[in-house]
Design a protein around this nucleic acid. Structure first.
Lengths: 114, 114
DNA sequence: TATACTTACTTACATAAAGTAACTTTATTA
DNA sequence: TAATAAAGTTACTTTATGTAAGTAAGTATA
């Protein structure tokens, strides 16, 4: 790959992990298998998008969906080998954020207290 | 940070680099300082979006814009220290893509040849 | 038994972001 | 003089995201 073009595989990998929410979902699943509502709560993502993104990631072979036919049924999402192989990427990103990223000014904790 | 929430700095770092095109732009600038049209050509991104994204990244302190008042004026984009510090993230992502990402079926090279 | 609650989604709709194409400005070359 | 180039901007269309409400299957509660 020269200066004037991008490796198409890299481009594809980038598309997979940099799609909105995908990175945070993978990062969350690196902590261990989790249920839909656990991810939903942790990331403050809507069910609509979480559902869509999990399907995308499953389709890309990054995420695995397991159904445990207990009562009530339990559905767990986890990473495949391909997904777990992203761990170093996220470790480096964590290093970068802790070294370089500052938070913006936060809004007042309680807007009712003047 | 526990299981039930995401570190807000990580979340912000993620937002910065995973915004559409941002990763590819940074990856391109890791090869060295470049002009607007060089990036435009390499990434096949429209001027409209490249302009917007470069402004975002400049605002985040990742990209630097330098004007050389030659004739004709030359404008070069490059990474700041903060931007260059992302190099390990991209190295790991490159490793991952070469190990795990396959390309989809490509369309025929020349649709005019049946 | 009726009501409410939970999980894991889906549907419908509004808004924001991305994509496309044409245009601008300043200068340069054929 | 016309055409080309760089570095954008403007106007418009399409796609993605966000929000809210709804659904089905099962559980617990009054």
């Amino acid at each position: 790959m020269n200066q004037n073009s991008v490796c198409p595989r890299f481009e594809k990998g980038m598309r997979i992990v940099s799609k909105r929410w995908a990175g945070l979902i993978i990062h969350q699943l690196l902590k261990g298998p989790q249920r839909f509502c656990a991810i939903e709560t942790a990331l403050q993502i809507s069910g609509r998008l979480l559902s869509e993104r999990l399907k995308d990631l499953e389709h890309e072979g990054v995420v695995k969906r397991d159904v445990y036919p207990e009562t009530p049924v339990r559905i767990e999402y986890s990473l495949t080998d391909k997904g777990r192989a992203l761990a170093p990427v996220f470790r480096e990103l964590e290093k970068w954020t802790s070294a370089w990223v500052e938070l913006d000014e936060e809004p007042a904790a309680d807007p009712l207290t003047p």
